[in-house]
Amino acid sequence: MKNVIDVKHLTKSYKSNKAVDDLSFAVKEGEILGLLGPNGSGKSTTMNCILSLLKFEAGEIKIFGKEMAPDAYDIKTKVGVVFQDVAVFDELTVYENIDYFCGLYVEDKATRAQYVEDALKLVGLEENKSQYPKQLSGGLLRRLNIACGIAHKPKLIFLDEPTVAVDPQSRNNILEGIKKLREDGATVVYTTHYMEEVEILCDRVIILDHGKIIASGTNDELKALAKIEEKVTIEIPDLAPEKLAGFDKIKNVSEVEYDNGILKIVYRKGKNNLIDMMEYLKENMIQYNKIFSERPTLNDVFLELTGKELRD
C-alpha cells in the first residue's frame, strides 16, 4: 500500500518550547492511524502543520505524494478535517451548516444534496437537520462537527479528539461512523488521549510525548513493549498478612496490593501465571469470590516508557 502522508523531520516550536521535535512518520492508504499522547504532547500541532495551517521550522510534508502548501487546492479537495473545537455557525441549521461546508468542496448542487443526506445519516442527525446548533446537546453538536468535516467524502480524514466531552451513546455513534468511513475507503488520522478508542479503532498507533515519537506499531506490538504480562484482580474478603506476603513469592509476580477486600497482582512476562496463583489460593485455603484478568493497556505502555499516566 502506498503512503498517503509522508512526514519527515518535522520540527515546530512555540517560542522556546519545542512542540514537535524532528518527527517522521508515514500513513498508509486505507489505515486508521492513531496519534496518542497526553495533552500538550504535540498531536494537534502536528496535525495543523500537516494541514499547512501552522508554520514550522524544519521538515517536509507530503500528502498524496505532493508537497502540502496553503494553496495546494488539489490536495485539499481530498482532505477532511474534524477539529477538536466545534466549528459551526450558530445562525445556520444543522442541514445548512453541513451544506455550507460541503459546498466549499462540492459545487454541484444535486451531488451536494446527496452528500449532505449521507453525512446526516452517518452521524445520526437526520431528525435534527432543521435544528440550530444551540438546540443540540453536546454529543449531537460533536456529531454535527464531524458531519461538517467529512460530508464531502474525503479520501483522507483528520479527526482531532472528536469525542471529547461526549456522552457514551454519541461516542459509540462517532466511533462506528469512523469505522464506516474507513470501510468506504478513507484513510484516517485519529488524534486522541483516550487509549480505549485507539485500541478499538486504530490499525497502527504512534505514541507522542513532548513532540517526539516514543513508540509506534500495532496495538499488539506496542503492548509487547510492556514488561507486564497481565493484571489480576481477586475479591478476597479476608486475607491474613502472612498469606498476603506469600503472593510476592509466586513466580513472575512483580507487584501485590491489597486494599478493602480487593487483591491486585501485576505479573511480569511468563507462562502459567494464573495456574500458579490458583494453586497458591488452594494450598492456603484462601476464600475468594471473583477473579478478573486484564491484559496490559496502552496506558501501561505509556507509563513504562515515560513514567507518567496518559491522562496526566
Partner: peptide, 18 residues
Amino acid sequence: MPNITNRGKRVAIAPTRK
C-alpha cells in the same frame, strides 16, 4: 481566519481560494 475562529480553520483547509 484560522488564528481567530474555529470556523476560520475549517475555511482555511477548504480548497477554495482565500
